[in-house]
């Protein structure tokens, strides 16, 4: 018991219980969709050829559904590791923006607490938190932190339970149901809300055309080149007075 208390006080900031409850309540409706997404990711990892052990380690250690699904075809084809990591990094770069937007609420914490909190800062939690607190004059209150941990707990549990279930049950699903399609659809669900304005649309179109045209290049270099070209086009088209924080979308997943 003392050990548990010590861990809690060292790794978690002091919180207001009402905040925790509101965080849990606010996140709960999204929990079902997160669980569906986790299930698809779990099944897809094993169907893609990862061993059950590797898939379990991956879901807990990586904890980033979009990146996991995006690198899956690369891992299955034995792509060079720098390409695998670069792809995950590109997909995860949105978390850098989240961290920059959220740091004000966590800045007074000791570094261990900050590091643990950052691990939990996924898409849906970020979106709900910013929507709820961006107008608060004070940042880093026990109520806000409680909300963050409450929402994060729902997110983490729904994701991990469903993902682990998917990994363990994958063997029971027949291969010809088009489950790789479910993995593609899960990525489309993340992609669609990101593509709203002209710069993003043009960037995605350029990337899409180039990625198909360059599919023959060795070492998956076509992927890297098409992404760099797409991002360049989008940045060039972006008006200088764009919004400071990306529009958060609570419906898009992990």
């Amino acid at each position: 018991m003392n050990f548990a208390v010590e861990i809690r006080t060292k790794l978690l900031a002091p919180v207001d219980r009402k905040g925790v409850r509101e965080g849990v309540r606010t996140m709960a409706p999204a929990g079902i969709a997160i669980a569906a997404w986790g299930l698809v990711t779990g099944v897809a990892m094993v169907k893609g050829g990862l061993s059950v052990t590797m898939a379990l380690i991956m879901t807990v250690a990586v904890f980033a559904g979009s990146a996991q699904l995006a690198v899956l075809p690369l891992l299955v084809s034995g792509a060079p590791l720098p390409i695998v990591w670069a792809t995950a990094l590109l997909v995860n770069l949105r978390f850098v923006i989240f961290a920059a937007a959220m740091r004000g609420y966590f800045v007074s914490m000791p570094w261990k607490q900050r590091l643990l909190a950052s691990y939990f800062n996924g898409d849906v939690g970020f979106a709900l938190f910013v929507r709820r607190f961006s107008d608060d004059p004070e940042r880093g209150t026990p109520f806000q932190l409680g909300f963050f941990y409450g929402a994060a707990a729902v997110n983490w549990v729904s994701w991990q339970v469903s993902s682990i279930a998917g990994i363990l049950l994958a063997g029971l699903a027949p291969t010809d149901w088009g489950l790789e399609l479910a993995a593609v659809l899960a990525l489309v669900a993340v992609l669609v809300p990101m593509v709203r304005r002209l710069p993003a649309i043009m960037g995605v179109v350029v990337t899409g055309v180039l990625s198909v045209a360059l599919v023959h290049l060795p070492l998956k270099l076509g992927l890297v080149i098409s992404v760099l070209a797409g991002v360049t086009v989008a940045v060039v088209l972006e008006p200088a007075d764009g919004p400071a924080v990306p529009e958060a979308d609570a419906e898009s997943m992990t």
């Binding site: 995006a70 990525l187 990625s211 797409g230 991002v231 940045v235």
Partner: peptide, 12 residues
């Protein structure tokens, strides 16, 4: 824009 482009380069 990087995440949207990276996902596109995988999905398309």
């Amino acid at each position: 824009y990087a995440p949207a482009c990276a996902l596109t380069a995988i999905v398309v």
